[in-house]
């Protein structure tokens, strides 16, 4: 089965989509690595200013923690893609 997940966009990715969120169809058992590939395909297809190199150094996260590449995408809460951070 396939279902749509919403991924929040922050930092430089926020400039790519006015709503700062992207909807991606994903198989139910998709891993974070699969989500990464889906976002890259979406970016290349829809966003002229998309930087694949920035995605390559970004991580995916829930509201609780950064996700590992090989774990299943959690379906019960928020998802976000986090470019390199620069707080403080």
């Amino acid at each position: 089965m396939t279902a749509t997940v919403s991924v929040r966009l922050f930092g430089a990715f926020r400039d790519l989509a006015p709503a700062a969120v992207v909807e991606l169809p994903l198989p139910d058992d998709a891993s974070v690595a699969t989500l990464r590939a889906a976002l890259e395909a979406h970016g290349r297809g829809h966003w002229p200013a998309f930087q694949p190199g920035l995605l390559a150094v970004s991580v995916f996260a829930s509201a609780e923690r950064v996700l590992r590449e090989h774990e299943p995408v959690p379906r019960d809460g928020e998802l976000a893609v986090l470019p390199p951070v620069s707080g403080g």
């Binding site: 922050f10 974070v32 991580v59 950064v66 986090l82 470019p83 951070v85 620069s86």
Partner: peptide
């Protein structure tokens, strides 16, 4: 997860390159 966009005197703006988080 914090990102800094700098605004310059010449009117340009840019997101800071930052540090990659470890998964």
């Amino acid at each position: 997860p914090i990102w800094k966009q700098e605004h310059y005197a010449d009117g340009d703006s840019a997101w800071s390159e930052g540090c990659s988080l470890c998964g």
